[in-house]
Write a protein that binds this DNA or RNA. Sequence first.
RNA 1: GCGGCCAUAGCUCAGUUGGUUAGAGCACUAGAUUGUGAUUCUAGGGGUCGCGGGUUCGAUCCCCGUUGGCCGCCCCA
Length: 436
Amino acid sequence: MASFKSLPGFRDFYPEDLAPRTHLFRQWRRSAHAYGFQEYDAPVLESLDLYKAKSGDEIENQLFSFTDKGGREVALRPEMTPTVCRMVGAKANALKRPIKWFSIADFFRYERMQKGRGRCFAQFNGDIFGEAGPEAEIELISLLIQCLRGLGLAADDFYVRLSDRNLWFYYLEALGLGEEQVRGMLGAIDKFERLGEAAFEIYTKAHGEMPETLKTAVLRMLAIKSLSDLERLVTELDNEQLTNRLADWRQVLGGLDAMGLSDFVSVDLGVVRGLAYYTGFVFEAFDRKGDLRALAGGGRYDDLVKKLGGPALPAVGFAIGDMTMELLLKERGLLPEVASKPDVYVVVGGGAERLAAFGDIAALREVGYRVDYPMKDLGFGKQFKNATESGARLALIYGEDELAKGVVKLRDLSQREEVEVPRDQVAAAVRDFLSA
RNA sequence: GCGGCCAUAGCUCAGUUGGUUAGAGCACUAGAUUGUGAUUCUAGGGGUCGCGGGUUCGAUCCCCGUUGGCCGCCCCA
């Protein structure tokens, strides 16, 4: 029994574990590039203050933080948003707008292990800076959907719940609530799905009893499931802020509909995301069966860049986690079997044949073919077995007889047929076979 | 931070009402097989039975603690 293990909550990636992860990353990168997003990266270690500035002092409990040898308080990054805000903020005036960036990176949180959650995980992060209008939401939500569709998931596998903190603010303020009361109510709404009306205790404890009319009004908003529901409510209330905001909703949903994505999006004001820094539209992606934690989440955060020391810069972003994503893909049979197979497996007779084969092996590898061969002298039977198990489609046979005739045998491993080709035509023959 | 379940080979698991040297299948390595892949057969390596303590003549088994894992709660940037 090995005496060293990986730390709790951290994962080793053996080749068969890395293959699905590589698949996720490759598809995410492809989607982001298709949408014109540029990839960036950043340090894993950041100043602890960066996270305290964004989330408050309590955050430290959930961080991998320590004091470095220079006496600096530092933390492994638990998320990308503060970092990307810092980066964009520092060069905001030199960057062409809109700024469309993405990253794929590891994050660290000191939390209890659970299904779909570990202490080290990867996220795709996509953000748009410098666009205050709903066009940014259209682009970003459609990218989120594409990141999941690119992995083979369809509208009956997942959906995006779209909500809006501004709508709640305008609505609740129209009902007479002050800013603190609104924040308290958003906290309650965040819990409503799980706790039911018991969630309102969060509000009543801090702000006193809820009048029945307030509760009814909140429940009515929570019951909204479509744009037409929303239009009906807003029309009835005849409030200028709400009416203006409704135009944004029409634009976002209209844009997504024009992209053919209506089936992936549902209006659901029960999503508010606990974070205080979100300032407008917020959204979360879930699997339809609903037995996994959220696949992705995001929203608008127009004040954060400034709060972290940059200029005022509107922003909207989202993140997709790798762990829940992988669970869902595995459930749906959408993960690839093996990462890497050779194209060609070379069977060698003995020492002299091995040296003869090396020249051709090197030449084939030089032009990009994946070529493997046994390192020990083995019987032909064993070598063919290895060739089959390697997943190669083609075997090249370098035996005493072949070399004496100046040929090499090409064996089609699936058809069990072989042909002889002259040594100097091996590369061409391999190319013809593999491209056929 | 709180509760429930679990811990024997790389994996899946058996086992002993407490008793000599702890087993199987799969996987891995080698041989049967010195020029052709399946199946099969044979052999081999691999375990301080998670760790520590207690009870006992004797503990992988019973008790306590601890660590780790799974599930749920809290949290979830």
